[in-house]
Design a protein around this nucleic acid. Sequence first.
DNA 1: CCAAGGCCTGAATG
DNA 2: ACATTCAGGCCTT
Length: 280
Amino acid sequence: MVDYCKIDLENTINSGQVFLWKKYPNFWYGIDGQNILRITDSGKIISYSKNKIDYFREKDDLEKILKAISKDKTTQQAVQKYQGLRLLRQDPFQCFISFIISSNSNIQKIKTCLENICESFGKKVVFDGNEFFLFPESKTLASASNQEIRNCGVGYRADFVIKASEMVYSKKIDFECLKNCKYAEAKDLICQVPGIGDKVADCILLFSLDKLEAFPLDRWMIRILEKYYPQTFKISTKTITHRQYELLHEKIVNHFGSFAGYAQQFLFKMERENYKKKWL
DNA sequence: CCAAGGCCTGAATG
DNA sequence: ACATTCAGGCCTT
């Protein structure tokens, strides 16, 4: 008997989709844009701002989605093993910057960079008797200097962060508009941002812009497809070109259906655990 | 359209 | 202890 409402907070946070969370003895604190969330293990959310958010996508029909993506033994097992794992609906700007920084990096380092960015540029607030730094707004990062951003540890990605922030502040990139676009259209638009290619775009689309058919293909997912799906998805070369990425994504949506992004999250979680990779 | 090299940092390995 | 190698995705050539 599966309880589709039960959320596994630990597995959800430790699945590579989100970075600014910190565990306390009985709950987690997380930064989500201009908001701070406190979540108990039972899944109760207390938020700093009173804004209503559906951080856990609780309106998604999990029963339907999990059945839909369970097309093969591998996915069935991953879904079974990590059934409380959820996709999050994150603050778009924070997600956008997070994954620009994520390229050519790893989870621990991304977290450190983002914490530095919050400390250097975010508003300091007190919530629950503790001090926190909110994620900075686009205007602030857009007007920062290259050196200031570099000091956060992002290296050559500093220019990407500044230009990307400018594009958001000037509304050249408008997240509300992207939410209303179809996947392909939103992806074309977001790929115009420097530092955003296929993989980073798919992360942003999946984790903050409600595009559930987005299926980020990083080195781990490629490895997973080669290992568990050598017949279904034949991968010829080591590095995936843009064209190959597109063709592969088409095959993936054919196989998993329009909720493919959920499948990606379960598969990624499973394989990273198999290799005992560290999370936050 | 594709292939190869460079970018930056920290962890892992020698 | 130190030096080298590697992991990671995007951009330019």
